[in-house]
């Protein structure tokens, strides 16, 4: 049978990019995502296996870049691991074979909509959207926060660069909120 044609979280064929003033919002459909949670009492084993497989497992509230795997902390002994979708669509299978029974691994790719935000400085935008003290946080800071009633993950990649993971079903509402805030600020 013919292969199914995917839609983006915003319901389109191609990823959406929106610009307003200095801000660019880019929907990312090329990220594979999985949760990795250490099995009870197996944190050390997991760390070992992860190191071998080049899966970073950063400390609380942080994101760590890597190739092909990057990761951010989401909960005690739990991480979200990112990888390029093209090569790692089956991220769960890949991680399961690398980490074996040290961790519980669950597909998260399509649970989220990913937006990359870029501007010279995102502080003025983000202060209208969430209670994160963005300016004071270091690059690599990762946190869960609330934007317009939606629970999102916010990762700081620089003063003017951040990635948001929001609930996929609310992608349109989240984008609308960011755009509205952007028009309000700039």
């Amino acid at each position: 049978m013919a292969s199914l044609q995917p839609l983006t979280a915003l319901g389109r064929r191609e990823a959406t990019t929106v610009t307003h003033g200095p801000l660019t919002i880019s929907e990312r459909t090329d990220v594979a995502l999985a949760s990795v949670a250490a099995r009870n009492g197996r944190a050390a084993d997991l760390a070992k296996a992860a190191q071998k497989a080049d899966v970073p497992l950063p400390g609380p509230a942080s994101h760590q870049q890597g190739t092909p795997y990057s990761a951010f902390w989401t909960a005690p002994e739990m991480w979200f691991v990112e990888a390029p979708y093209a090569s790692h669509e089956l991220i769960v299978d890949l991680l399961k074979s690398a980490l074996a029974d040290t961790a519980s691994i669950t597909e998260q790719t399509d649970a989220w909509v990913a937006f990359d935000l870029s501007a010279h400085d995102l502080t003025r935008l983000l202060e209208r959207l969430c209670n994160v003290d963005f300016a004071a946080r270091p690059t690599g800071y990762a946190t869960r926060t609330v934007m317009e009633h939606l629970g999102v993950y916010l990762i700081k990649h620089g003063p003017g660069a951040a990635r948001l993971y929001g609930p996929r079903s609310s992608a349109e509402s989240l984008l609308h909120a960011i755009e509205t805030a952007a028009h309000s600020v700039w």
Binding site: W73, A75, P76, T145
Partner: peptide, 16 residues
């Protein structure tokens, strides 16, 4: 009316 130990859930955080 005073010191009290309570359970709070970090729902919009790390779920602790």
């Amino acid at each position: 009316a005073g010191e009290h130990q309570e359970l709070w859930y970090h729902e919009q955080g790390d779920r602790s």
